[in-house]
Design a protein around this nucleic acid. Structure first.
Lengths: 209, 209
DNA sequence: TTGACATGAATGAACGTTCATTCATTTTAT
DNA sequence: ATAAAATGAATGAACGTTCATTCATGTCAA
């Protein structure tokens, strides 16, 4: 084969991380055992320890993966033709990327873990700051900013958008247990568009964005 | 003394629940051991089982307490003179009630637990529905509704407010680790007022609520 | 008033189980 | 033949839960 010399370390790691994602979203970090992960990945327990130092290392690696995903997403959003497109890309990705509603549950669990694990908290804060700054820049550059709501700076608008999107995601984690990704995305879009209309259309204009 | 015959069952229960709240907010549901709770409460492990059937029963009782707190809060909000006052009461209570940022961490953990425990999920949904309906009613009755944003129904506005408040609370759980309750409250109020201004002032009016 | 008796709140060592982690062994690829 | 990859039984710590025991307090007969 082509990869005689290439080591498959990266493949194995991501195989394990995928399995861990499924388990963690299903049972949470601390109710998932290493046996659960190995069974989901279809490998032995011991093998996990060849690729990760500990269970915590698995959690950290997943959090890191989340960080990289978000950064990639921010790049995609930058390419979008309009601000609304960018926001829709950024805030509905978790409905399709990965599987089912795994993503929502994972993010909520990540925040819960962050509320007591300083390392995770720091990482989540980093992701948040980078994203919020990125979105604030997109807002600052967009032509819509001329219709911007009274007295709000791009940074404030970005934070409002993030708060709302995160709150909607949290709701998604406990409602909508059985729902298609498409429907899930539709609902997230509705939240985002409501806010959008509020932010960037004048009250005396007709109610269409 | 006066209460020779009064049983202190309720006192003991709430003592245990207070201790559990501290532990859960600090370490999460599943990293907190019954020994942790007993140590925090200053009692023995066995005694907890005199007042609660199991660890899960403790968690359920806390979730139930949360539900009752929210209902009480909704009642207080109903008494408020204006809609803005009502919203401020409703969405900043967790900054003062209880201690420190325990409340935020607890709520995030509750959602995380709900993302995999159907019983908790159902309870959180109940709380949410009741609250959202209550707030929607307040909005519908308020004079501000005449300036309401184009095409949004009270129910939609309530949901937007809830999403935003919940998202801000989630952020609070991972930022602001060391902060006074007053400062915490101030920040939550800022979020709420930004949204308020957006919802109920026209774009061509000056930027004061 | 006294002391025997009853109550049940409170204790914490012990139990069975589960878990993260290790490592002697086997399998696979070269 | 050799080394790397993979296995899963074994280990010991930690957990939720139980329960035999303690003891302060209340009851009541004498």
């Amino acid at each position: 084969m082509a990869q005689l010399t290439t080591d498959n370390t990266a493949d194995r790691r991501s195989q394990i991380l995928s399995a861990a994602m499924v388990c963690f979203a299903k049972r949470g970090f601390h109710q998932t055992s290493m046996h659960d992960i190995s069974a989901e990945a279809g490998i032995s327990v011991g093998l996990i320890y060849r690729y990760f130092e500990s269970k915590n290392a698995v959690i950290s690696a997943m959090a890191d993966g989340h960080k990289r995903e978000i950064h990639t997403l921010l790049e995609s959003a930058r390419q979008a033709p309009t601000l609304l497109d960018a926001l829709e890309i950024f805030f509905t990705a978790h409905c399709c990327a990965g599987e089912r509603q795994l993503q929502s549950a994972f993010v909520v669990n990540l925040y819960a873990e962050g509320s007591r694990n300083p390392l995770i908290a720091q990482l989540v804060r980093d992701v948040l700051n980078t994203s919020a700054t990125g979105v604030a820049e997109l807002i600052a550059q967009s032509p819509e900013m001329r219709d911007a709501p009274a007295g709000m700076k791009p940074q404030q608008i970005a934070q409002l958008i993030f708060d709302t999107a995160r709150g909607a995601l949290m709701r998604d984690a406990i409602e909508n247990i059985n729902i298609t990704p498409a429907e899930r995305r539709k609902r997230q879009l509705a939240v985002m568009r409501n806010l959008w209309r509020l932010l960037f259309t004048h009250a005396n204009e007709p109610a269409f964005a």
